[in-house]
Every structure is written in C-alpha cells, then in structure tokens.
Design a protein around this nucleic acid. Structure first.
Lengths: 187, 187
DNA sequence: ATTTTTATAAACGCAAGCGTTTATAAAGAA
DNA sequence: TTCTTTATAAACGCTTGCGTTTATAAAAAT
C-alpha cells in the first residue's frame, strides 16, 4: 500500500466536528477532502455512501460522548466528588454540544437515529437518577429530579451559547439547581 | 401589473416555515419557488439578496412569535387564568418552535442576529419574571425563578421533539414545575 | 392609445457537490 | 521479481443552486 495520508478515523473525526458545527449540511465530502488536503476518492474508499459515513460518525459520538461522562464520574470516590465532577463535565461549554442538537433534527427523517437518541437520552437520565439516588433521594424522587435536571441542563446550554462562560459559572448553576435539588454536601 | 401569483408575504411565510424546519440550509430559492409554483425570478423581484430575505423572515418571526405570547397572556383577567394560558402557549408543541433554535446557530456568524436574539430572550425572560412577580414572588425571586423556568421550558421542548404530545401534557409539566415554583392557585 | 410599471417566465453562465470511472504509485504477498 | 492490494489522484457526467439577463404580458398611469 502507498503511504497512508488520511485514515478512516481522520474522516470520522472531521465529520464529527463538522456535524457538531453545522449539522447534516456540514457533511460535504469535497469540502472535507479539501480540509484534509486529500482527494475525495479517499472518502469513497473508506465509506461506501455518505449515509454509512454518518453512521460511523454517530457511532463515534456515542463512544466518546456519553461513555466518557459516565466513566469519568464513576471514578470519583466520594459522593461529593462525584457530584462536583459530574457538574463540571455536564455544564462546561464545548463546541461539540450541538452534535446531539443537530442529530435530533436529523432524526426527524431517520427513525434508526431517533431510536439511538432515545436510548442515549434514557441512559443519561438513568445515570443521573442513579447518582441522585446515591445522594439520598428515593428511587422515584431521583427519577423525577433527574428529569428536571436534564431539561434544565439543556436549557442552560442553549442560553449560554455564543457567550463566554465565566470561570465561576458553577456558582450560579448550583445556586439555581438548589431551587429543585435539596441534597447538599459539606462545603 | 399582471395578476399577482405570489406575494412578498407568501415568500416570507414559506421562508419562516422552511427555516423552522431545517434552519438556514432550508432557505433554498429554487426549491421554494417550486413549492410556490412560480419562477424564482419572483423571489429576486421582491428581495435583492437572500440575506435581505432572511432579515425579512426574522422580522416576521419577531412579530408573530413573542408578541403573540405576551399579548394573548395579558388578555386574561385573573392571575390563574394568565398562568393557564401562559402554560398552554409556552409548552404546547408547534413545528415552529425550532425557529429560534436554528436562528441561534445562524447567529454564530451574524452578530446582528445575535443581538436580536439576546433582546428577544431578555424580553421573554422579563415578561415571565413580571408574571411571577404578579403571582406573588419578590422581584428578585421572580427573576431567578423565571430564569430557571425558561431553561426548563427549552429542555422540555428539546425532549419531546419527534414525540407526540399527550393531551394531558400539562399535568406532568405542572407537577415538575412545582419542584421549583411555589405559587399555587386554587383548583 | 401609448407608455410605463409590475410580476413572472425562460434561458444563461457559473460554482459546488455527488458518486463513478480510470489511472497510478507504493507497499505487501506470491 | 512479478502480482496483487491499498490508498489516492484526475477526470467525467450529472444535478442543484445562485444570481443575472432578456423577454413578455397584464395592469396602471399618462
């Protein structure tokens, strides 16, 4: 084989980035080829169709997005530490947060994707609920609070977009969370 | 003049619809012309550029979206009635809700639009806060509660998208709202 | 009754994007 | 060493979309 200029993963990484920035309309083969400084035939070598490519990108997103949140949080030893890490990870702004936003819109016409999204949303919600349960809520309350928390989280990110997030952003967040989350750790 | 097939407002209405469905990538002159069963020269007759068209669509959105919510709500006589109308209007699903979401993404590269959005968001938030103030909160509390409410509202719509909203959706909503909104009306 | 304005059609040239086909050079396998 | 596979380049045909230009018919103005 010739010297490999661009790997399959390079394409997926870029696709992930572009989709998070512009959604499905950001996935433009020739433009991505230009960015990777390679001919588009590289794309069609690795992926039969654009649709296959999207699938690969989504799979990659699943891998890094949710799994990382869960595994990172669960590394913590104490509940308080878990909570702090969880808050930091979930509320910290990132250019990739829009990925799921655009994916939900894309899913309007792609049932398979909608099922994936429902699964991911449920996983996140369940994980949050399990955290809240550990923190002292009953199972039922934990579920309800997680549901409210998740919606608040989405709204939060929607409101801070295109704004720079201050260093002490968690202070304000926690203060608002306290309006519907009662558990408190020693500070 | 010849018999007018398609008015300027027809174009704007369609643009409004398309943008709410697909964002900026939904504004495609020739596709819209096909939908209106007219030649695209009609478009370029009314609008010098696509950018001018977007501006007109945004202006239209401002007109009908926020103003309607506020004026409809304020028609109510009692506080309880206001609250009920407000809840119904804000939580009821509509295909046009995505307009502001896509507009926020569009605003990433259009500062003028971002300023419009900030203004609208502030207006909505202020209106909500003023409602909550009427309902008994202090001015400061009303502001905080409105801020939480608005985020919850956004998250709610993000979560029910692509799902059919049950008839009694308000029951669940109110039950969750009660976790951070204390005011209650006689039922 | 002309003339002007209005609103659309038809056609044009151009750029971008899709997916395919053909060519080719480097690496690995035989 | 020859043969095969791998990864990319170059070129092609086709479609979509942009914005412009030219033509034209109906209504309004003169």
């Amino acid at each position: 084989m010739p010297k490999l200029l661009v790997t399959k993963q390079d394409w997926i990484n870029l696709g992930y980035q572009e989709f998070a920035l512009m959604g499905i309309s950001g996935i433009v083969v020739e433009r991505m080829a230009k960015k990777l400084k390679v001919n588009k035939s590289s794309f069609y070598w690795y992926f039969k169709t654009k649709s296959d490519f999207i699938d690969a990108v989504v799979e990659y997103w699943i891998e890094i997005e949710t799994n990382q949140i869960i595994s990172t949080t669960e590394q913590a030893l104490t509940n308080e530490e878990k909570w702090n890490i969880f808050l930091k990870i979930t509320f910290e702004n990132s250019p990739y947060l829009d990925f799921i936003f655009y994916l939900k819109r894309y899913a309007q016409k792609h049932e398979k994707i909608q099922k994936i999204i429902d699964k991911i949303d449920a996983e996140r919600m369940n994980f949050t609920a399990s955290l809240f349960y550990e923190f002292g809520y009953s199972k039922e309350d934990a579920k309800i609070k997680a549901s409210i928390f998740y919606k608040y989280l989405i709204g939060y990110h929607e409101m801070i977009r295109n704004k720079k997030q201050p260093k002490n952003y968690l202070t304000e967040v926690i203060s608002e969370l306290n309006h519907f989350l009662e558990f408190k750790f020693k500070q």
